[in-house]
Design a protein around this nucleic acid. Structure first.
Lengths: 221, 221
DNA sequence: TCACTAACGTACTGGTTCGTACATTAGTCA
DNA sequence: TGACTAATGTACGAACCAGTACGTTAGTGA
């Protein structure tokens, strides 16, 4: 049930529902990320698969549902990474920095995911709204942030009274923008935000920004 | 040469190249922002105009060039707003906050612009790269940031040694994300980042974040 | 081993959509 | 005022593309 089992094939053409579906999802992810929802071609996806267009409709129903399935899997990947994060042993400052870096790294390593989310926003998030899987789960990152924030605020280390969702937005915005807008930013300002040589530079900048915000001395509010 | 001059029309149908072009651009902006580049329909744009599809090709050449023209005008609007900004009389902290708020407000008030930029990034910024107008101008905001940053760093008020482009990226990321990703964010985290009731909340958060970053006490670097 | 079904392939269609060939009219300048 | 051109309208075509009707084969359980 894990992936393909090429060995079992008699002459090369085996029937394997799970593998076929996974292959379609892989190719569809690239195609949707490449060209957007309307720019993506079902025929193109089929052509890059070892199967045919008929199978896409057989397994997923249509282009819309295929895109929804692609989104569900992409969100699943980052949630899994967030779940694996362990910051219990760190102090609040180090823990927040660690979480921010996880988001930073994941976004950088998964530009297709960023593109899919951008595309989904162009379409008003209608696909994830219709998805049952993505509807009411809530991100694991949010739970982590909540715990760190509570510890940091209680100890007096964190002076800002943000809530977890807003802090998540702050971290995500920096990480997301850097990848999603790198093309226009490069053309307009002649700077590559995803230049590997600047990786550490921006990673540090993000952490500094978040920590500075959380620990700043506030004037009387 | 400013806009239309309805008065001159004898019975309602006048020939006015400037007005026709402006009207096409207005409608095209909405249509591209609504549906993305590939989702936008040239026929739909023509239908919502007082002219015909023929005119779109007559004046702009094609769908691609029309989209480029739409982008050029949209960028022109924000650059004009940045040019009008006057922060010379403010101290560096207030000046940076003021500039951040300008970006914040502009992005909030021009969601179509945000969508167009998102769409352009999906397409690798190929249209603005091909544009002569947008190629080598550089944003007025950048000049403003450079001056403020120099003053703030000289006076010792700003401890961070960022450059103007990176600071611009930081400010833009927060403002852009809030608008561009509001749909997925609302569905996934049940929070409307563009809720009018939270306008001041996020505006303050942005300013606090940037100022905290710029003025934070750094450990020895 | 045979029947049954899940998995798969081929060929096609109906609607859509960008773009254009061709025809026409309003303004303007000599 | 008449000729010339910029501006505009109509009708159509060719390609493209999501989706499907119909037919076939591999595995599997009785």
């Amino acid at each position: 049930m894990t992936r393909a089992d090429e060995a079992a094939a008699p002459n090369g053409r085996t029937r394997d529902a799970a593998r076929t579906q996974a292959e379609i999802l892989d190719v569809a992810t690239r195609e949707f990320a490449r060209a957007g929802y309307d720019g993506a071609r079902v025929d193109e996806i089929a052509a890059r698969t070892r199967t045919t267009k008929r199978m896409i409709y057989y397994y997923f129903g249509g282009k819309e549902q295929l895109f929804t399935a692609v989104l569900e899997r992409a969100y699943g990947v980052i949630r899994e990474a967030e779940r694996r994060l362990d910051v219990e042993h760190l102090d609040p400052v180090a823990a927040i920095r660690r979480l921010a870096e996880l988001t930073f790294d994941h976004h950088e390593q998964h530009p297709d995911f960023i593109r899919l989310v951008s595309i989904e926003n162009i379409h008003g998030a209608e696909h994830i709204a219709a998805s049952e899987k993505l509807g009411r789960i809530g991100s694991p990152a949010l739970d982590v942030i909540r715990r760190i924030l509570a510890a940091g605020q209680e100890s007096g280390l964190f002076t800002a009274d943000v809530d977890a969702v807003d802090l998540h937005a702050m971290i995500s915005s920096f990480c997301f923008f850097r990848v999603s807008n790198r093309h226009t930013f490069r053309v307009l300002f002649d700077r590559d935000l995803v230049d590997p040589a600047q990786h550490e530079h921006y990673r540090t900048m993000l952490g500094d920004m978040v920590i500075a915000y959380l620990t700043a001395e506030r004037a009387a509010e």
